[in-house]
């Protein structure tokens, strides 16, 4: 069963083709890597997928229970409501809010009590707020951040901020999770742990994951398929073994990263 189908996706900024004619097919439950040198257009693909940019042309179809819906051009919040969540490469937490609030905000789309209840704090407010906090704590526990729930997000160490970004995305209850360099800036041990966590998440929450990562060891280890972008174009896609030995990929990377992995 497919979950995502990107067809001829193109985005140009003035004269620059940041993404050009990209096709990506993803099956439900897959963990796919999206790699490529700096400026290849990886983050731009995520921004197109989540509605932050509107594509110049092309279609993005998101499938729920086998039923497809074109989501290109929808507002980001609407795409999130469809079940696509993401993290940001350049961490965009709500810095001056607590860890708990960061996660609670992401649960907003499933909150049922209305404005009246929020002004008057009717029983439905107390009931649901309690549930929200419980759910947040549960999620924070999974990521070992529960003891930091009252800390301001900006005060967390870098690695924990990256993890909180994932918790926040998970709190929106996504079907498709987009991770933009989640291990960036982490030390090898942290990065190793995160890799295991991502693999575990996918199973536990029945997710499909699209992962951008510079650290080849991470991608090669957990992704079953990899798409390689260069200058906005897909230059290769396939299993990690095929990608490693692909001549165009080696050229794009000047050989080093891929061989070291």
């Amino acid at each position: 069963m497919p979950i995502l189908s990107i067809k001829k996706l193109t985005k140009s900024f003035g004269g620059l083709m940041a993404v050009s004619n990209v096709n990506i097919e993803m099956e439900k439950g897959e963990l796919i890597g999206l790699i490529g040198p700096n400026g290849a257009g990886k983050t731009t693909v995520f921004n197109l997928l989540t509605g932050i940019y509107e594509p110049s042309s092309g279609t993005i179809t998101f499938y729920k229970d086998g039923v497809g819906k074109e989501i290109q051009g929808l507002k980001p919040h609407a795409i999130c409501k469809e079940g696509v969540a993401r993290t940001f490469q350049n961490i965009r937490l709500f810095k001056d809010l607590t860890v708990l609030d960061n996660v609670r905000i992401a649960m907003h789309k499933n909150v049922k009590y209305g404005l009246l209840s929020s002004f008057l704090h009717l029983p439905s407010y107390y009931r649901e707020e309690k549930e929200i906090v419980e759910k947040c704590i549960e999620l924070l526990k999974v990521f070992n951040l529960e003891h930091k729930k009252n800390e301001y997000a900006k005060n967390l160490p870098y690695g924990e901020q990256r993890r909180l970004e994932i918790v926040r995305a998970m709190a929106t209850d996504p079907k498709l999770l987009l991770l933009d360099e989640p291990a960036a800036g982490m030390n090898p041990a942290e990065s190793q742990k995160l890799t295991e966590l991502i693999a575990w998440l996918r199973k536990e929450f029945d997710l499909s994951i699209l992962l951008i990562e510079h650290d080849m060891s991470v991608v090669m280890k957990i992704c079953e398929r990899i798409y390689v972008l260069d200058h906005g174009m897909v230059i290769a896609n396939g299993a990690p073994e095929e990608i490693k030995s692909n001549r165009r990929v080696i050229e794009a990377y000047l050989g080093e990263d891929v061989n070291n992995a």
Partner: peptide
């Protein structure tokens, strides 16, 4: 409040 903090992140988390 999340809009004040970061409008793009808020939108991406499902806030209209």
């Amino acid at each position: 409040i999340s809009i004040r903090e970061d409008e793009i992140a808020a939108e991406a988390m499902g806030i209209n």
